[in-house]
């Protein structure tokens, strides 16, 4: 197995994109997420249409631009302004916005009373959880690219040759998994450590919790990519990216959303990403791993199932002489 692992690393220099993923994409994305999440909550931009009146109110969270004419609707769509406010009569304003009703109410109330309602911000997700959500998505998407040696070996019939040696297909997959795992885990962990220790950026987790959560995320991505690489023969990365993006969106890895459909809830509750998000949210809130035995058990269950299915399929294919 060590031989296989060493073989993977020897072949890395020829696979430029593996290096790109590990050294460029992962750090870049993590950096970007931290940057975006770390920026203080940006003020709402309001276009205030009025010929003479100065804006009646002032607040650090609300930036008001006074103008004579209504801005283009597309500026509103693109988010240049969050709302357009027009004075109808004294102390009465109409608010045009594409945002949800509660936001509209908030702005209306603000202009009428000069104060923001108390519960004007929805509970925001912690920065650490946001970062881990994105990392999970990236890991799931890029895991397959880091598993590329396996389908590569099959195409070049070196896999068949390896199967003729005393090495079993399971051992081969374990070695491949170790490679994928380390290529995902090491750069991610490294970047976050640098951010945390050198730049003193608040990641939201302690080191121990962070290590544990990252191990879970990368292990899941590794099992998933091994599974996909075992099941599919062509267009593996395309299919994997598609599945990863969709499931991560639905599981709320990128942003929280309130689902209004029980049916959809039932579907998304099956996904392993969901308990992962719950877990990291809780950990960021100060709880420990022992508070989430079910969530952890469920994710581990997924890892085991994906892993066994993948290795079973490979074993079957080898026995049938497909490779």
């Amino acid at each position: 197995m060590l031989t296989i692992l060493r073989n993977r690393f020897l072949r890395v220099p020829d696979k430029l994109y593996i290096i790109i993923i590990a050294v460029v994409i992962i750090p870049l994305v993590i950096g970007a997420v931290i940057y975006f999440s770390g920026a203080t909550q940006s003020p709402y931009k309001i276009a205030f249409i009025s010929k003479e009146d100065a804006p009646p109110v002032k607040h650090e969270l609300i930036q008001i631009e006074q103008m004579n004419e209504r801005p283009a609707m597309s500026a509103l769509v693109m988010g240049k302004y969050n709302a357009i406010v027009e004075a109808v009569e004294d102390q009465k304003y109409t608010v045009t916005t594409y945002k949800d009703e509660s936001f509209k109410k908030t702005i209306e109330e603000y202009f009428e009373t000069g104060k923001l309602p108390v519960n004007h911000t929805t509970a925001k997700r912690g920065i650490g959880t946001s970062i881990l959500g994105v990392i999970l998505l990236i890991a799931l998407m890029q895991g397959v690219a880091l598993t590329t040696f396996y389908p590569d070996d099959r195409n070049k019939s070196t896999f068949k040759r390896i199967m003729m040696s005393p090495l079993t297909s399971r051992q081969y997959l374990v070695a491949q998994g170790m490679f994928t795992f380390s290529c995902l885990f090491v750069p991610t962990y490294f970047v976050i450590l640098v951010m945390k220790i050198c730049f003193k950026i608040n990641i939201g987790f302690g080191l121990g919790a962070l290590t544990g959560l990252l191990i879970i995320a990368t292990a899941l991505a590794t099992a998933f990519s091994l599974f996909m690489a075992s099941v599919m023969n062509r267009n593996i990365s395309l299919a994997t990216s598609g599945i990863s993006i969709l499931t991560c969106l639905l599981a709320g890895c990128l942003f929280n959303y309130d689902s209004q459909s029980k049916w959809l809830d039932a579907v998304t509750n099956i996904l392993p990403q969901k308990p992962f998000m719950t877990l990291s949210q809780g950990m960021e809130g100060g709880q420990t791993f022992s508070d989430f035995p079910w969530q952890i058990g469920y994710i581990v269950g997924w890892i085991i199932v994906l892993w066994f299915e993948g290795s079973l399929i490979t074993k079957k294919k080898v026995q049938k002489g497909i490779y």
């Binding site: 072949r11 019939s157 070196t158």
Partner: peptide, 29 residues
């Protein structure tokens, strides 16, 4: 498996690592 050696019909070698590393890899299995 330990006692046999197969020369497959296809060129089952790694193009991107040296000849010696190839032999060492397969022998290492």
């Amino acid at each position: 498996k330990q006692n046999i050696g197969i020369v497959p019909q296809d060129l089952a070698i790694f193009e991107e690592i040296t000849a010696e590393q190839n032999v060492r890899f397969f022998a290492g299995l």
